[in-house]
């Protein structure tokens, strides 16, 4: 059987909210090392992956590897029944067709349990090799959220370029053009408020802003985000979930036809 207890249950709610619009039906792979998911969106333009480590849970038990087919929209509806300070426990039997979720209030004076019906889902798994990035940028997640939101009011696509000047985001639309350049900083009070840029080679890639905006739904999970740009490859946008794991998004670039 599988059983996992998370004191900070709101993280699970935030994670599901961060991915449910891109992927609706997904497989969660459970093993004694934790919970993993990898899924492409319906149009196969982007890929979402998360990892929740077993040691990030307050209690984690998995007797043998399980695949749970989950409708994320339905899971999100169920998680709406949990309070923001609730402790969440998930349980599934080895051959069961439901995932049981239990929400306990902080004082443990209110307990909700809900069974979510599981599904059988056919999904493709992509092998993503370790890559040598052209440029790696770490920035406050609120900064990333603001850039992609602001540029969405100018156009549908963004050119992202890394040069010795910094990282430049440029959007072009019917009403005009906009450029936002981020330079490396070191003066912020907290380390995570700084922008860090590590560039190995200049790179320029074009992406659909709609997806980059969707990735910003993970902002509540982490104060920082890492953006990896690689020549002629999908951009990778990483949010580390403190003491628990990560959610990563990959977006295929727009290419000249």
């Amino acid at each position: 059987m599988f059983e996992a207890r998370l004191i900070q249950g709101s993280l699970l709610k935030k994670l599901v909210d961060a991915i449910k619009e891109l992927c609706t039906e997904v497989n969660w792979d459970i093993s004694n090392s934790g919970i993993n998911m990898q899924s492409m969106d319906g149009s196969h333009v982007c890929l979402v992956a998360f990892n929740l480590r077993a040691d990030g849970f307050d209690h984690f038990r998995c007797d043998r590897p399980l695949t749970l087919g989950i409708n994320l929209g339905n899971l999100a509806k169920i998680l709406k029944c949990s309070g923001s300070n609730d402790i969440i426990t998930m349980k599934a039997d080895d051959n069961g067709d439901t995932l049981t979720l239990m929400f306990e209030s902080e004082k443990q004076d209110r307990i909700t349990d809900v069974d979510l019906k599981l599904m059988s889902i056919e999904s493709e798994h992509l092998g993503i090799p370790d890559q040598d990035y052209s440029a790696e940028t770490s920035m406050p997640s609120s900064e990333y959220q603001r850039i992609v939101r602001d540029l969405s009011s100018i156009g549908d696509t963004v050119n992202i370029s890394a040069t010795k000047e910094g990282i430049k985001f440029s959007a072009m639309g019917d009403i005009g053009t906009a450029n936002i350049t981020l330079r490396q900083t070191s003066s912020a009070d907290k380390e995570e408020e700084n922008v860090k840029i590590e560039m190995k080679e200049p790179v320029l890639l074009t992406f659909a802003l709609r997806y980059l905006n969707n990735f910003a739904k993970a902002t509540p999970l982490s104060s920082t985000v890492q953006v990896f740009l690689t020549k002629d490859l999908p951009v990778q946008v990483n949010y580390n979930i403190q003491d628990l794991g990560y959610v990563k998004y990959y977006l295929a670039p727009k290419i000249e036809e």
């Binding site: 492409m40 149009s43 196969h44 333009v45 982007c46 890929l47 493709e124 798994h125 992509l126 092998g127 993503i128 090799p129 696509t157 074009t206 659909a208 490859l233 999908p234 990959y250 295929a252 670039p253 727009k254 290419i255 000249e256 036809e257």
Partner: peptide
């Protein structure tokens, strides 16, 4: 004119 590429163009389906 630029077109949208798909994930399978970059990573192998296992």
């Amino acid at each position: 004119k630029s077109g949208q590429s798909r994930m399978e163009s970059f990573f192998q389906v296992l």
